[in-house]
Amino acid sequence: MAGGVVAGAALAAGCASRGRGNWDFLNDGQAHTLAAICDQIIPADDFPSASQAGAVTYIDRQLARHYRRHREAYRAGLEQAELLSRKLAGVSLSQAPQKSQFEVVTAIEKEQPAFFALVRSHTFESFYGNPRHGGNRDAVSWRMLGLDEPPVRGRAQYDFTKGAQS
């Protein structure tokens, strides 16, 4: 009974995924474009790239929660980025070779400075922020900086009954 009632209620409430794939706000196409931009901002080296570290997950979650005010900027910005990529590289940004992606993202920086600054800022937040928000997967940037997370912290074997010297 539970599931039937709930399933009906869920459908009535519009809970169906509506083709979003695994994303809360973005669609798959937007997510791929965003990943390509993020990876030009923080590319992979000895450590993962921004998207490998969860930048798109972070931005997507925030656009569905705390960053709702930036939704329109992302919709328009990603659409423009795709148009620019097709104009300069002839293919979708996510399918363009690395060199072309860099040129397209450089063009985005010049032609859409506000959008680029927003993505750059959010990419840094995702990469260096707390993993609990969806980015910095496995605390990769903190390990890159030499920080152990969680830290190894032993406790004092004190005896309260023996006073401060115990």
Binding site: M1, A2, G3, G4, V5, A7
Partner: peptide
């Protein structure tokens, strides 16, 4: 409705 819901739910999940 309840009966079908019970089996339907079980099947659904």
């Amino acid at each position: 409705l309840i009966t079908s819901g019970m089996f339907g739910a079980s099947y659904y999940y």
